[in-house]
Amino acid sequence: MSEPTVTVIPDQGREGLSLPSPINMDWTYPDRDVPHPVHLLVYPPSSPEHTWRDLHWSVAWQPAPGAWRHVQVDTYDVKTDPAPQPRYVFWGTRTSSTDESTEKAAHLPLGTLDREQRRKIEALAWETPVMYPNGDWNCQNWVRGLFEKMVEAGLVEQQTVDKVVKQAEIAHGALPGR
């Protein structure tokens, strides 16, 4: 059996979309120039049948109590927009209020990084391509691609990434909803 084709989608998946990006609350919760722990967030499954490959991953940190700054791709599905639908989209890093799903997510530590290092993660995210949907590629592949760039840039150690990814794979059974 052949591997699914992986092709880069233009403009981080944003090309031709009718809806604006999700709300970014970084004006309310600015990312100040202090070190913050950075995590891989692994969100609980939406149904018990999901495997660990179905779980949403996000690289995130808390710029302030009650808020998280997320580096992630989102699923976008507006049937009247150009194909492919659904697709993954990177809108850019954004800050949101803490919600129940973020609280229930597994918080796997990548390290404590200063603001300049976190800004580098944000820049590397723009260099991490989003792919056309193919039934295999998902947000976890995108985060793994970002991790490769973070290791190359010296922001995290490969050993730390390997440990966190392994924890994410086994966290599936321990997350709420399982």
Rank of each mutant, 00 (worst) to 15 (best):
H50F: 12
Q72A: 11
A106T: 00
A67F: 05
V34N: 06
R87H: 12
N141F: 10
C139N: 03
V42S: 02
K149A: 12
P82A: 07
P45S: 14
W61K: 03
P65H: 08
Y88G: 09
Q72R: 11
W68V: 02
N134R: 10
D74F: 03
W142A: 07
G16H: 10
H50Y: 13
A106I: 04
L108S: 05
R178P: 00
A83S: 14
S2C: 07
W137H: 13
A67E: 04
K163N: 12
V151L: 03
W52V: 11
P20K: 00
A153Q: 07
A64M: 07
W137F: 13
Q159D: 13
E103Q: 10
K120V: 09
G13I: 13
D33S: 15
A60I: 00
Y132C: 09
P37T: 15
K79G: 11
T7M: 10
T80I: 06
H172R: 12
V59P: 05
V164C: 05
T128Y: 09
P109D: 13
V8T: 15
E157N: 12
V38F: 00
Y29N: 01
G145C: 10
K166M: 11
M150V: 04
P30H: 06
E148I: 07
K149L: 12
P86I: 13
A106N: 00
E169G: 01
K104M: 13
E157M: 12
D77Y: 06
D81R: 03
W126A: 12
T128Q: 03
G135P: 08
R144D: 13
A64T: 00
G13L: 13
T102A: 14
A67W: 02
S101L: 13
M131A: 11
Y132F: 13
P109W: 05
P176D: 07
P10I: 06
E15V: 08
V6Y: 08
V42C: 03
T102V: 06
E3L: 12
A153N: 02
D11Q: 15
T93E: 07
W68A: 01
P30C: 04
H172Y: 03
G111Y: 01
W91L: 02
P82C: 10
S18L: 04
V59D: 05
E127P: 02
M131D: 01
L41A: 08
P22V: 10
D31H: 06
Y132I: 01
Q140H: 07
T5Y: 08
S96W: 04
D99P: 00
E157R: 15
A123T: 15
Q159L: 14
K166A: 15
T28H: 03
D81I: 03
T51V: 06
W61T: 02
A153M: 04
D114A: 12
P30I: 04
A106Y: 01
P86Q: 12
M25C: 10
M25N: 11
P4G: 08
P4S: 06
Y132D: 13
N138S: 01
P35K: 09
M150Y: 02
D31K: 03
Q167P: 02
Y29M: 06
I170C: 12
A174R: 08
D54I: 11
K104P: 00
Q85S: 15
L17C: 06
A171C: 10
P86W: 09
I121D: 01
T102C: 08
P109E: 08
D26F: 05
M25I: 04
P129V: 01
K120I: 05
M131R: 08
